[in-house]
Structures are given as structure tokens and as C-alpha cells.
Design a protein around this nucleic acid. Structure first.
Lengths: 179, 179
DNA sequence: CATAACATGTAATGAGTTACATGATTAA
DNA sequence: TTAATCATGTAACTCATTACATGTTATG
């Protein structure tokens, strides 16, 4: 469970309110760890409870921005967590189950689905590439932090490319298998 | 949510008890959709409730195997589900969050973690390749069902290869960034 | 000043995980 | 025949999702 630490990371990069964090999630860390605003508000409250972050103003704010920032203990916790062991995220994809199901009770015309997924991944890849050419143009070193951000983005690019290649192969297999 | 349909698929391939399904999950569909035995038992009970599967014996079995098999309505439901739209599984990986955290508050020596993950993925890749050479040796067509099973396995192989490539790059970047 | 957009929050639900319990079968 | 293992099951809990509610700020 990484959401609290994803939030601590975002706040370590820059203070912000819940809604700002939600917006930032949508275009950086969120590529690899999504969260709805409800999760974010709840988790921020917990982090404050635990003393890892603080927020202003003190009194209850309904409708008004609440400014969060990370505290030293939060940074410490984040550093501790970074080197915790983790298992690879379990690969869980409905499409794989659908392919097995297609094998068992098909054919059902699954290639339509696959073409749709292909388009989704192509769009995502295009988005990542746009971000890359905007934020990481030159190939010369740009400092440790930027290099690591670039690395994470390149993971996304690899991942989407992987899917596109696989889905193209899947289409071929499906067409061949029908004939 | 695919667990019920993963179970229907497994039962369409071959009838079995809860524990047998759990064991099969561990080495086929389970590569892409995991479930604990508790989930499986609960979900099998729901599927029976819904009339998609039936089980013997009728009376309560605590400690004794309960044999499940799929019913026609279960097959029908499975066919219907195959062509439901699905979104790509959200990519959610703690390591990506750790890399961002490392960028924000590091360096912390994250390369140890990455080497560990690298080993995990190399092991998995080796396992998948063993399965491939055991079950899908020849390159000649082996029928629709086998081709689709092979396809799913190849997705796993691609996926693990992707991770290995990425983690190797990550190691390079981390070493370079420290220096 | 009315309305839309924004920001925070509550409540209900469900999937998935963990810990534990109990009956049946197998092996020492 | 006792212990270990297998098979099924119950209970409690957490994360994540969905729907909804309420207040504040910006805009015409």
C-alpha cells in the first residue's frame, strides 16, 4: 500500500492542497499510482493524524483550500519506506482472463476488444512521448532528480510499447486461429 | 472484477474442487489473476447461488472435497462477459513511487532494491520459458486453444522481459546519478 | 446575485487480504 | 492412534470505488 507515501513524495516535491495533489497525481506519479480525491483527502487526514504532515488553517474548512506541507518526521518516514522490500505488483489484467475464456468457450469475436485496447495504449504512448519531448528534450544529463523523473516516464513508455506489441501479436493469432 | 469469470473459465476447461482450482490458478490463469483460497471458496458459493455452477455433494462438506462443474447458463454468462468492454488494468507499482520518492528525498541506496527486483523478474521469466519449452515446443500450429494459451504465456514472457530491461536501465541511471 | 466550477467531505459498498477455526484424510 | 496435512469455511479488516452532500470562490 503506497498511497500515503506517494502523497508524502508529492508533498516533499512541493506543498499543496488536496485538490492540487489530485491534479498533480493525474499527470506524474498518478501514471503509476492512481487515487481518487476521496482517497487523497482521507489519506491526508491520516497523515496529519500521524504527524507526518501539517495543514492550515486549523479550523474546519469545507469548500476552502487546505494547505498541506510535509514535516521532518514525514521526510524521515519516507526515507525509511523507500528501502522497504516490496513484491512486484501482481499482474492482473482482465484481458488475459478473457483470452483464456475465449480459448475455452470461444470463438466470440474478441479481436474487436483487442483493437479497442490497442487504440487506448497507443493514445497513452503518444501522451507519454509528448511529455517526454516537452520535459526531457536533450540527452545531456539534467541532474539527479530530473533523471529519475525521466526514468519513471520511460518505464511508462516501455510499458505501453510492450502492450502495443503484444496486442498486435494477439490480433494475428486470433485471425490465424479463426481461419 | 474478473474473479468469477476466471473461475468459470477454469471450470469450463475442466471441473474441479475449490482446492484444485486454487492449485491450477497458481500455474496458469493465476499468472495474470491471483486469488487466495478464501476468495475462491466465497466466489464459488456465489456462482452456485447465481446458478452458473453446481456442486456435489448437496449436504455441507467441511473438510471434504466439493466437486464443482459449470452449467450451461455459466457458459452463456462467460461468453457474454468476454466481449464486455474493459479498461487496461491500472499500472500500480510501488517501485515507481519509490523512484519518485528517491528523487525527492534521496539518495538512499535504492539500487539494492532494484537488484532484488531484477532477480525476482529473472526467476519468473525463467519459469515462463521452462513452461513454454515444455508445453509449446514446436512452432507448428497446435490448434486454436493451445495457440491462445501460448499467447497468454507469451504475454507473461514479454512482461517480465520488459521489467528486466527497465530495471537494468534503472540501475545504470542510479549509478550515474550518484557519481 | 445567481449560477457554475471548485474544494472538501460523508456514507455505503465491494474486492482482496489476513488470521483463525474445524472437519476429513493421510502418514508415521 | 496420534500427528501432519488437506479441504473447506468464518470473521475482521483495509483499500479502493461510487454516489452523494455541502460549502466557497469565480464569473456572467
Amino acid at each position: 500500500m503506497s498511497l500515503p507515501h506517494a502523497l508524502l513524495t508529492a508533498l516533499a516535491e512541493r506543498p499543496g492542497s488536496g485538490s492540487e495533489l489530485a491534479a498533480r497525481f493525474d499527470k506524474s506519479i498518478g501514471f503509476f499510482w492512481q487515487a481518487t480525491h476521496q482517497q487523497i483527502y482521507r489519506e491526508l487526514a491520516r497523515l496529519e493524524e500521524a504527524g507526518f504532515v501539517e495543514s492550515l488553517p486549523e479550523e474546519s474548512t469545507r469548500g476552502r483550500k487546505r494547505a498541506y506541507r510535509i514535516l521532518p518526521s514525514g521526510r524521515k518516514e519516507l526515507k525509511r519506506w523507500i528501502n522497504q522490500h516490496d513484491e512486484p505488483a501482481a499482474l492482473r489484467d482482465e484481458l488475459m482472463v478473457r483470452l483464456r475464456a475465449e480459448a475455452a468457450v470461444g470463438p466470440t469475436g474478441l479481436d474487436k476488444q483487442i483493437e479497442r485496447r490497442l487504440a487506448v495504449h497507443q493514445d497513452k504512448l503518444a501522451l507519454y512521448r509528448r511529455i517526454e519531448s516537452r520535459d526531457f528534450q536533450g540527452h545531456e544529463p539534467k541532474g539527479r532528480e530530473a533523471e529519475l523523473h525521466h526514468l519513471v516516464l520511460k518505464a511508462g513508455i516501455r510499458f505501453e510499447s510492450h502492450w502495443i506489441e503484444f496486442l498486435a501479436e494477439a490480433l494475428e493469432v486470433l485471425k490465424r486461429a479463426v481461419a
